[in-house]
Simulated scan of single mutants.
Amino acid sequence: MSRGGTTGDEPESGAILSALGSKYSAEILCAAGTPKSAQALSDDIEIPIATCYRRIEELVDAGLLTCEGRQLSEEGRRTNIYRRTVDEIEIDFSNDQPEFSRKRRTEAKNRLQDQLED
């Protein structure tokens, strides 16, 4: 778990709070436990695709979602595939600045979950 504000490549706490505060962000993170395209996420949580793309961009910028690669869609177009980078986030507001505690997803967990999905 990581704590505190920004360290090196850690996103700023403001970016994380902003991303989490946006409508549908939590639903996208829950749905992105396995690799999914923006269209699949949009369909899963029944939101407009444009809104989904905006939330994905915010979540990627905040370090909560990552692009895992590209795959062909049913229409034959190359689409980005996204997966969440965290399983848990705790936010402590008791100090002057929010402090975050994150339980990051491990590559081993991703591989195991991918195998279970196949």
Rank of each mutant, 00 (worst) to 15 (best):
G8Q: 10
N80V: 00
E88W: 06
G33I: 03
R111W: 02
L41F: 04
F93N: 04
T7G: 12
I49D: 03
T51G: 09
N95I: 03
Y82D: 00
L64N: 05
G33V: 06
A50W: 04
P48Q: 09
T79Y: 05
Q113H: 00
R70E: 15
A19C: 06
D92C: 05
G21W: 07
L41G: 04
R111A: 13
A62W: 12
T51D: 13
I89C: 02
L116V: 08
D118R: 15
G21S: 07
I49A: 05
E27R: 13
R111N: 11
N110G: 12
I16T: 08
D92S: 07
I16K: 11
E46I: 04
T7M: 12
R83G: 02
D118V: 10
F100S: 00
K36Y: 02
I91E: 03
T7E: 15
R70T: 15
E74D: 15
R3D: 12
E75S: 15
S18Y: 14
E10Y: 11
E88M: 11
A40K: 02
S25C: 07
E57V: 09
R84P: 05
L29H: 10
L112T: 13
E99V: 08
P48I: 03
N80Y: 04
Y24C: 03
E117Y: 02
D114K: 13
Q113I: 07
A32L: 05
E90M: 12
Y24W: 10
L17M: 15
R54W: 08
